[in-house]
Amino acid sequence: MSAGAATPAYPRRWSRPPLIPDARLRWAIVLGAILYLIVGTGTVDVNWARVSEGLVRGGRFLAGFLAPDFTSRWSDISTGMIESLTMTVTATVAGIALSVPFGLGAARNIAPAWLYVVCRAVIAFARTFQEIIIAIFFVAMFGFGPFAGFLTLSLSTIGFLGKLLADDIEEADPAQLEAVRATGASWWQVVAYAVSPQVMPRLVGLSLYRFDINFRESAVVGIVGAGGIGATLNTALDRYEYDSAAAILLLIIGIVMVCEYSSGFIRRRVQ
């Protein structure tokens, strides 16, 4: 009665075909990789004396972390922190304000070809260099201090937000643009009624994310002289004051976490 009697004997085992079908070639590649690893490690020249010295220093750093000192350098720390936060807020606001027009101009579906080329070029330029390199330039041009940091972060915000905003506009539903255009709306009205409702939630989310990034970057660009908490941190490390450095790092971690949670909360609300 069982239907199994009529079924032919199908194989009971199956394995995924290997990426490299030839078994000899497969093993040759594995052996080659192991050999290369051994030879490669052999050529690294390790100065063990220096390593042990570094380990001791690292131990002191860790000890400093366990006993962070907020008080003895507090005036330096608070000045640096306020500078960093000022830099972050102003650069984020200025960056968003400038990236919106560039983003609109760099969206192929709403901008004429010449404007598209110009705006994409500006955005590409702003994205070309890493923040530290831009910061070194601006410090050389405008001197040490937070103004150079402000310019650096504004420029990289334009590159970041402008590109992502333009890409988002280009992915907007064309039917909605067409419908608003068909009512006789002007270009700005099409932007206000068809483009902005479609991209606004993402723009808000990206702006909050960029605020996060700008705060973290403000600590980095300080190291090359662009002011802010990074400069304070650099000084503390130069003076071997690991307890103060630990205090600064803990403050940075705390502020980044506050930013993270609040931006997540706001992003959930705007969807």
Binding site: D173, Q176, A179, A182, T183, G184, Y193, P197, Q198, M200
Partner: peptide, 16 residues
């Protein structure tokens, strides 16, 4: 265009 109304296949309303 103000004098020409248009109605679309997928409604083409601004969703948000």
């Amino acid at each position: 265009r103000r004098r020409i109304g248009m109605i679309f296949q997928e409604y083409a309303l601004v969703e948000r």
